[in-house]
Design a protein around this nucleic acid. Sequence first.
DNA 1: CCAGCGTCCTACCTGTGGGTAGCCTTTCCA
DNA 2: TGGAAAGGCTACCCACAGGTAGGACGCTGG
Lengths: 199, 199
Amino acid sequence: MAEHMRDEILAYKRDRILQEAVKLFYARGFTGTTLDDIAAELGVTKPFIYTHFRSKVELLAALCQPTIEMSLDAVARAAEAGGPPTVRLRMAMEDFTRVILQRQANIAIYFREEKNLSPEALDAINTLRKKFDRVLSALLAEGVAAGEFTIPDINVAALAIGGMISWAYTWHRPDGRLSLEDVSGRLADLALRMVGAAV
Amino acid sequence: MAEHMRDEILAYKRDRILQEAVKLFYARGFTGTTLDDIAAELGVTKPFIYTHFRSKVELLAALCQPTIEMSLDAVARAAEAGGPPTVRLRMAMEDFTRVILQRQANIAIYFREEKNLSPEALDAINTLRKKFDRVLSALLAEGVAAGEFTIPDINVAALAIGGMISWAYTWHRPDGRLSLEDVSGRLADLALRMVGAAV
DNA sequence: CCAGCGTCCTACCTGTGGGTAGCCTTTCCA
DNA sequence: TGGAAAGGCTACCCACAGGTAGGACGCTGG
């Protein structure tokens, strides 16, 4: 019980570090942010961070990888659900958009700072991304087989759809004209049009 | 005449520096590349670079801004050409894709290293990007007015199309399955589908 | 009240890399 | 062949930031 709470507090501290790191990396870039900056924002000092992360680069990986996992999970869950491909594709696209926009800062940091990741972390993430493309391509192929989609080049279509939605991290403003639900609905519509599905 | 050739040589040297900078920034990132690296690649030393560029950041701007200008020009030229909106949109998307893929490294560097640009350079580029979105949105609106396109939300459609195509810089491989012309044709097709045009 | 432990801070080291001052070499012209 | 200008190099400076060693403080249990 006592041990249990101690772990919770440890996890909480770790989480707070990640939160501030995301905020600052997003605003100023990875190399534009110092560990002293992050520590100052938390009201602590640099060695505090080192009791939770081995290096600055590990911090970066810790805030990128889970977000990529969430993207893959969103699409994989929808693809494996029941129902016709058109319905599953819509669900996949809406959920994927939600992840992109809810983790907007993390996504932006990942795409910008990919080159700063360790080779191991980069490998792990690339594996996830390949799986993402395979899952999406497979769903598109199912739709074609079922006669619901018309797609000249499935691989290009998967990349184009994935790109169109990923890109939303560059332009969505949480306090702007469109809510998260507006955007996910509209982008899902556009994705369905791209594959020639009945909207 | 003598002065003339001297200027040509100056321009050539400047251009070679930019070429190597693009190659290295693309491969290792902006902060991951030192000016000594670039100089070594050219068989010169760091002060040589400083006779052509005032700082590392100016070098970055010099390799980003012209590429963004080319993107805008491609779309603007097609939009102002004659013919029905469907034809002009196809031309715009094909030409835009060509710019993205021919300047793949520059585009990648720009999106990754935006935060490292000087405020002035960033302003100039943001102005260009806003103009890009306006031109594309206007073309889509024309198509709707002419009854050729069906678009629920023109602004989102413009951002989605622009994103889908820009994204190609992340996945296109010049020596891969698809040639530059293959990709530009397929992405233009997908863009036309998104706006409900007759393909 | 004291002992001991865990937690975080003060203070420091050190490599790195952007940027510069001043010299040397080559070239071109008289 | 002398002299000056241009162009590039050697050698350097120094700020900055990632990372670490060791001490101080406070909390908990006896």
